[in-house]
């Protein structure tokens, strides 16, 4: 279930020079799972901007976005009190109804945000998640402290070694000798593929694709899976290991 509503910006602040966190107030009843996304209408833009949900509660939704184009540049300039027209509750999100006890959560760059609410959810279900977050360099690092504040083990990896383990998230798994029985991940495609190859537990991967509508109507973001054609926006963005065709 997903609906359109008007949301009020409570805050919009930088976490790094290019990554911003925006907290919005409004109806969150249609957001039901971690890993779902919202689709934001912007003045002068024909298509909405799909952004993953980092966290939500009864009256607020938090998104973390990277300024990469004119749409997100417009969002960067927004201030508390401004109102946005948003579709919420989009995408399937991650499933947690499995018997995993020690799930591993891996986020890369702007793939980190959906891991935050997922981590909270897994903790509330009595599971013991470990979190690995990967970035190019220390200047891009965000949310290490927020994850630590949840009381979970957090491993940082940077490609240039300026923070945490030097290398990719797959190097961090090896070096930190992380034990896990389930994998959840979101990030750039090469990272997802590397994790797919480097692990063998049950796993869920959150994918990105250029979208039209964001709610399954236009077929713009389709992909082929072992279970047939799927729409990243509606049947995804989360796909399970066994259905993925690279």
């Amino acid at each position: 279930m997903y609906k359109k509503g008007i949301y009020t910006i409570l805050s919009n602040e930088p976490l790094t020079p290019a990554v911003y966190r925006m907290v919005l107030e409004g109806d969150t009843q249609y957001i039901t799972r971690s890993g779902q996304f919202i689709n934001i209408e912007l003045t002068g833009k024909f298509l909405r901007r799909p952004i993953s949900v980092a966290d939500y509660d009864e009256r607020t939704v938090t998104i973390i976005y990277k300024v990469v184009g004119s749409g997100t540049e417009q969002m960067r300039g927004m201030v508390a009190g401004e109102k946005l027209d948003i579709l919420t509750g989009l995408g399937n999100g991650f499933s947690t109804d499995n018997d995993a006890k020690r799930p591993l959560l891996v986020g890369g760059g702007v793939g980190v945000p959906p891991m935050y609410n997922l981590c909270k959810r897994l903790l509330s279900e009595g599971k013991r998640p470990t979190v690995i977050i990967g970035f190019n360099t220390k200047a891009e690092l965000f949310y290490e402290e927020e994850f630590k504040a949840l009381g979970v083990d957090v491993v940082v990896a940077t490609a240039d070694g300026s923070a945490g383990v030097k290398g990719f998230v797959t190097d961090a798994i090896r070096e930190a000798k992380v034990e896990f029985d389930y994998l959840y991940t979101c990030g750039p495609l090469p990272m997802l593929k590397a994790l797919y190859d480097a692990t063998d537990t049950p796993a869920e991967f959150s994918f990105e694709e250029r979208m039209g509508c964001g709610f399954g109507a236009c077929m713009g973001c389709s992909c082929k899976t072992k279970y047939g054609n799927k729409r990243i926006c509606k049947d995804g963005p989360v796909l399970k290991r066994e259905e993925i065709i690279w």
Binding site: K45, F46, L47, E209, R210, M211, G212, C218, M219, G220, C221, S222, C223, K224, N229
Partner: peptide
């Protein structure tokens, strides 16, 4: 039919291009 390879959506001023 699956249609064409992705990306198959491009935003434009006051519209979009699709190659579904």
């Amino acid at each position: 039919r699956f249609g064409n390879p992705t990306p198959r959506i491009a935003e434009c001023t006051s519209g979009l291009i699709n190659s579904v």
